[in-house]
Amino acid sequence: MYNWDFYTVLLSLDLFMWGIWMTFLYTVGSILIGTGVGLLTCFARLSRFAVLRLLARSYQEIFRCTPLLVQLLWAYYALPMLLGFSISNSTAGLMVLSLYVGAFYAEIFRGGILAVDKGQAEAAQAVGMSQVQTMTNVILPQALKKMLPAYINQSVIQVKNTSLLYAISVAELTYMTAMVNSATYRPLEAYTLTALLYFAMLFPLTQIADHFERRMRRSD
């Protein structure tokens, strides 16, 4: 019978807290940057200009069709060889996480915008609204509602993806857990605690996504 000893692990609670804080920062930072990147990419995909569409599409496919772990390792270890200067692990991590989630967000935004009936844009244009006015007053408010559940789901995945920063030694929650483990030799307790901490962060988010999804179905 295994003798559970959470006490030893909990002595390093400050390290876990630091890990949570870093996980939170990388998640929020990459979601914010990724949302901006995603919106720009989405508008580029919907643009009249073929060059913009091609560029946006290429970026999306590169980031969607290669593993995030490989992207992180490439940006941190390989990219500096091309650039001729080194990049800190935090910069490489934030950059890759943002671009990665941005590629997926763009697809979610695009789907939401295309799901709005064409007649809506026509009705807005018929009262003289410009393209930007049509987008901000009529299309985006409706598209946002449609895309919100998928957006939250992608963001939940993003919280979990920050754990891959471990591979480039960013001191987020998973990395800190590994440190606690090597100091205490209590992997079962350390990783169980970490799993519980991730769960506690993510469960409320999935509930929010479900809530919006239910509300959306009702209002349709």
């Binding site: 009936d117 007649g119 809506q120 026509e122 009705a123 807005a124 018929a126 009262v127 003289g128 609204m129 006015q133 007053n137 009529v138 408010p141 409706q142 509602k145």
Partner: peptide
């Protein structure tokens, strides 16, 4: 212009549907 399928803005009240054009444009 008035359309066959109305094309009212579903996320706005009746009043907002009518006032949005004059306010924005």
């Amino acid at each position: 212009m008035v359309f066959q399928h109305f094309n009212l803005f579903p996320h706005m009240t009746v009043l907002d549907n009518i006032t949005r054009g004059p306010c924005v444009v």
